[in-house]
Design a binder for these strands. Structure first.
Length: 438
RNA sequence: CGGGGCGUGGCGCAGCCUGGUAGCGCGCCUGUUUUGGGAACAGGAGGCCGCCGGUUCGAGUCCGGCCGCCCCGACCA
């Protein structure tokens, strides 16, 4: 993309409405614009980030056998009356009425709908297990939206739902999802530690929140230093092998990790002092098992092996996709702007032509742009160098390919890494190889 | 939902107390000179001062109501 033609409005000053750093940077870098309290429009660069995150989430869901669906944002109140949640949910649920005076709601979550869909199509225990997911906009009418996109009213969420014949099956589903989450967050370039979470009335220990460490996080967190060297990815784990799954699961969940709400002082004190880590974090995912809560209340059942009806055991698994955009920025930025992890950046690199109009600079840039135009943002604007550096730093491209008369004469380009600020003069081919691979 | 604050060119703000020609910085447009970290000079465009009502000869300013947004707290992917 050529910056001279891009809809890429950057701001030099901080909008007054934004307090926290990710919100300010998202506004300044031209990722989003607020249209109402807690509701945002996504501009081209922001949408690219959102899509990159969604795609990584999607690939890792698919990899553990979950299947993607897409359910509507508007739901019939009837469904929710069946589960009893229509009255229980409270004012956070946005309710509306259509022209026929039918009650509708903008979905804050989809347990009822997915349970109904699955239940109406599945007859036998042989049709299970199933895990279905979607990436869809949700709406929760928060009393007080804040922190920009991290606590908006409308938000993009990946929500998955598993259905199993029995508890053991549900545990397998839960563990597979744990594996998928660890892989997902690693690919997103952030460390999200699974922390024990409240299981509500269900009990048990099958509930984890995934917390990204960031100094501006909402909750205090306590965890074992072992998480700093954790193999999060479980590359070799076979999702069909319960023993392998269990081994991975134990490895990533047995070390101590809890938010302040669930902090256990005695367990904490039992840890060697040099292994204690304290900080703050942002919740970006939550997985939990809730058994037959909805299959019972909505009377969804399948025939079991003995012919008797059984209510499938469910779990549900969320990732806050739009929240992650803000959370990643909270975890990765400096005074100058965003530092995108490579996997989520809107563009892999910025190409800075420091002297448009200079034959040598133009030739080099055009050559690079012709080859990698899809993956980079070409700053061909007739502005001064300082403006380009500042905007590139703000927007947080992982790499900056800097082409100026100096290097052009020497046959080199300058490669700057946004992550650590290092710069080096390299021959063109080598610089491109560093950025785009050999 | 309780408490606090703010709505004035695109953005950041002053002006309001004490009513009388709407201002500053940045950005934007034109020109000249500049050109490796948000340039300089000159000229220019751009405003139902959130909305409605009231007081007044006269309201950005005073009074009432409404709307919107932000912050702190209780609550959440």
């Amino acid at each position: 993309m050529r910056l001279s033609r891009a809809f890429q409005p950057t701001l030099k000053e901080n909008p007054a409405e934004a307090q926290i750093v990710s919100h300010r940077l998202m506004l300044r870098a031209g990722l989003v614009r607020q249209t109402a309290s807690g509701i945002y429009a996504w501009l081209p660069a922001g949408l690219r980030v959102l899509r990159n995150i969604a795609q990584i989430v999607r690939e890792e869901q698919d990899r553990v056998g979950a299947q993607e669906v897409l359910m509507p944002t508007l739901q019939s109140a009837e469904l929710w009356k069946r589960s009893g949640r229509y009255d229980a949910y409270g004012p956070e649920m946005l309710r509306l009425v259509d022209r026929h005076e039918r009650d509708l709601l903008y979905g804050p979550t989809n347990e009822e709908m997915i349970t109904d869909i699955l239940g109406s199509s599945v007859r036998s225990y042989k049709d299970l297990p199933q895990t279905l997911y979607q990436i869809q906009w949700k709406f929760r009418d928060e009393v007080r939206p804040r922190f920009g996109v991290m606590r908006g009213r409308e938000f993009l969420m990946k929500d998955a739902y598993s259905f199993d014949v029995d508890y053991d099956g549900a545990v397998q589903s839960y563990r597979r999802m744990m594996l998928a989450y660890m892989r997902t967050f690693r690919r997103l370039g952030v460390a999200a530690i699974p922390m024990v979470a409240d299981t509500g009335p269900i009990g048990g220990d099958l509930s984890h929140e995934f917390i990204i460490l960031a100094p501006t996080g909402e909750s205090g967190v306590f965890f074992d230093a072992g998480y700093e060297e954790m193999d999060w990815v479980g590359e070799a784990v076979d999702v069909e092998d319960p023993a392998a799954l269990a081994a991975f699961y134990d490895r990533v969940t047995t070390l101590y990790a809890a938010t302040d709400e669930k902090h256990d002082i005695s367990a904490w004190d039992a840890l060697a002092p040099d292994r204690r880590r304290e900080g703050r974090g942002i919740e970006v995912g939550h997985i939990f098992y809730f058994g037959t809560k909805y299959t019972k209340s909505m009377d969804i059942s399948v025939a079991g092996p003995d012919g008797a009806a059984l209510h499938p055991e469910m779990g549900s698994y969320g990732i806050g996709v739009s929240r992650l955009v803000g959370a990643i920025i909270e975890a990765s930025h400096d005074e100058a702007g965003i530092k995108w992890p490579v996997g989520v950046a809107p563009w892999k690199a910025a190409l800075l032509n420091l002297k448009p109009g200079d034959a040598a600079c133009d030739a080099i840039c055009n050559d690079i742009y012709a080859r990698h135009g899809e993956d980079l943002l070409y700053d061909d604007r007739p502005d001064r160098a300082g403006v380009k550096f500042a905007d590139a730093d703000l927007m947080g491209h992982p790499f900056q390919l800097i082409v100026g008369p100096r290097g052009a004469a020497a046959g080199t380009v300058e490669l700057k890494r946004r992550a650590d600020g290092t710069r080096e003069e390299l021959p063109l081919a080598e610089a491109l190889a560093r950025v785009f691979g050999a």
